[in-house]
Amino acid sequence: MKAAPFLYVKPKSIDEAVALKERHGASARYLAGGQSLMPVLNFRLDRPDLLIDINGLSELRGVSNSGSGVKIGALTRHAEVAKSEIVKSQLALLSECIPHIAHPAIRSGGTFGGSVALADPAAEWPACCLALDARIVLRSSKGERRVEAKDYFLGLYDTARTENELLIRVEFPAVAAGTKAVALELARRRGDFAIAGVLAQAKKTGVRLENVRVVFFGISDRPVRLSAVEQGIAEGQPMETIHQAIDAGINPDDDIYQSGATKTHLAKVLLGRAVEQLRQ
């Protein structure tokens, strides 16, 4: 289980990184936190010729305010997201996710951008991007472009990011004050990827929930937002009706431990609990 040979380079600027990648194309990989790339290298499941280590690009690290929203640099570690006062006060949904994310050593190594770039369907950050209408900022030699989260996640580990583009940050629009956020997931062991997860947020006005957002993860090839479910919750529809919307909206594949039907069931249970928490 030793990685096949590759070359390594650590560029000093984004331009240099992007230029290198464009020169080497599909035989090169950007290396961020390495928490997902390194295992596949060790397994020899991936064998790039060149690793472009972007960890020298300090401008890609950190959480800051941008206008009314929040931007998170691609190299921001999960642990830094967890500690960020900006995240705590303005992106409650992300804070709710933290306890579910891996383990201390992974949190200090893994990056926000890496997670969004990889787009594991069971990961929390991609689901947060979708739930919060984030824009994913991609950089190539042609410049920057922004992709809306809803247009970014295309399938299993498949995104709108083209081969050579570098994900440099994620921009979150402001979340309305008073919005309550819930992140629930079920994993067989603490810190494992979710077998089913739900992110939900809403503003509670009297007994009503407004601006409802619901994203499921771990149940499809990508995070899934179901507007019919959101509408149903906002309108106070009975849970059975909302469950029908879930059945219509998701069709999880079986995995080695559970069937798609089980995942759908768990998604419903989690949603019920999330809504209950939002109503409290």
Partner: peptide, 25 residues
């Protein structure tokens, strides 16, 4: 060597790191 067991945990700049997921370079 795939970042699950923690036997390789070391300290890098004062923070925990999975050594098997970090290149020597």
């Amino acid at each position: 060597e795939h970042g699950v067991c923690g036997a390789c945990t070391i300290r890098v700049d004062g923070e925990l790191a999975r050594g098997c997921l970090m290149l020597a370079v």
